[in-house]
Amino acid sequence: MKTKKSLRVGLVGCGHVAQFAHIPALKRIKQAELASVCDVNSAVAQEIAKRFSIQGFYASLSEMLQDERLDIVDICTPPDTHASLALQAMEAGCHVLVEKPMALNTQESDQMIKASQNLGLKLGIGHNMLLHPLISRAISMVTNGYIGELAGLDIQYLLNRYRGAVARHEHWCHNLHGGIFTNKLPPPISLAMAFLRNLEPVAVQSIKYTDREWLIADDLRVILQGDNGMATITVSTNCPKDIFILDIFGTKRNLHLHLNNAVMYTCGMARYGRCSVVFENFRQGLQILTGTASTALKTALRKHHFGHYALLLGFIESIQNDTEPPITAEEGRESIRLIEKIISQIENDPRYMRG
């Protein structure tokens, strides 16, 4: 059997998601050679290249494209640069994987999709949560009818108020149209899209109750209506730690996924009798214990991941096999369309307009 050649990858943007997700994943993939990294801060690019034993480092994409023979450009920069960098990379003949959100708006998304189609190049979107092992398992369980008929979803994305973008007024996300929510809505939106069809936001409520003027709002609630059910999304900036929870409701069983801890348990059909509560608590506790042990073992063996490895591997294989990327540009655009509608409802409320 003929071995497929490794694809040379150049990564743009050496921030947190690159250092802790994309680069470690790419270094594990045999079909990829991470040839170079690029960052507007050349010192950062040089430091990252040295730390991860990467040959090339640059301060601009144009310089990297000129000097390197690349097959793929992996874009990990803030979203206001995604469209221009993706178009530049595709015009140079490179396939592109771009972090979520794929662009600032649907107009930019359309430009990227058109370029990809015209040039015959792959354009993939970094909705890594859809490739999280627990999400893949949950999708299979729903598809196979394990929970009965799907009744709806509840998604909670709770952000640590003491660190990260929430606490840092200088973080780039606060300059986006929609502020931090433009950057944090893609994961819950993409999860809702994975289970429900033809979604539209039917209710959006946000509230501002702290003096953190860099936040457009402190908490956000969204109700999405689909052809086969509803999803509620909560994004809160006032929690003591980051928590991502997905509850899937079915007519026979419910699924509860704690994505940070990589633990899932099921709530079965009602049982009546004196021992039913004890039995259900024991059953759920056993599932949590088993899931925790499995996650701990995978973490120790460095096999635990939040979907980036599967995302990058799938994108590389889509190029080698000429198949669809794991997350298509059209899916990324639909996420952007929904986020635009949600943000417009927030920013049209005069209570939350920036001064």
Rank of each mutant, 00 (worst) to 15 (best):
T234R: 14
Q156C: 10
Y272P: 01
S190F: 04
L87G: 07
I72C: 02
I180T: 04
E324A: 07
F279G: 10
Q345T: 05
M353N: 15
E33P: 12
A167Q: 10
R337P: 10
L85F: 00
L301K: 05
K114P: 02
S42P: 15
H169M: 11
A86S: 13
Q225E: 13
A49Y: 12
H171S: 15
E330H: 08
H132D: 13
T323D: 12
A270N: 03
C94W: 00
N118Q: 06
R8C: 11
V235E: 12
H256V: 14
G226I: 11
E317I: 06
S190I: 03
W172D: 13
N144E: 09
R302K: 12
L185R: 01
G179E: 08
E33Q: 15
L150F: 07
L191N: 10
A167S: 13
M269D: 10
I75R: 00
K241A: 11
E347K: 03
N281P: 01
M64Y: 08
S276W: 09
T77P: 02
L134W: 06
I336Y: 10
I343D: 03
G229I: 03
Y146N: 07
L65S: 14
P326A: 11
L11F: 02
R161G: 15
Y209D: 11
K303C: 03
N118K: 06
G145Y: 09
T210Y: 10
N41T: 14
W172C: 04
F282I: 09
D349I: 06
Y265R: 11
A21G: 03
N261E: 14
L104P: 01
A92D: 10
N175P: 08
N228F: 12
S53H: 07
L87F: 06
R137P: 11
K27R: 03
N238D: 14
V73M: 01
A165D: 10
E47I: 08
I288G: 12
K184E: 03
S84N: 12
E99N: 06
K27W: 02
L65I: 02
H174P: 09
D74H: 04
R283E: 13
T292G: 14
L34H: 01
G285Y: 08
A194P: 11
F306Q: 14
V17K: 00
I113R: 13
I327M: 13
T182W: 09
A262W: 00
N254A: 04
L191F: 04
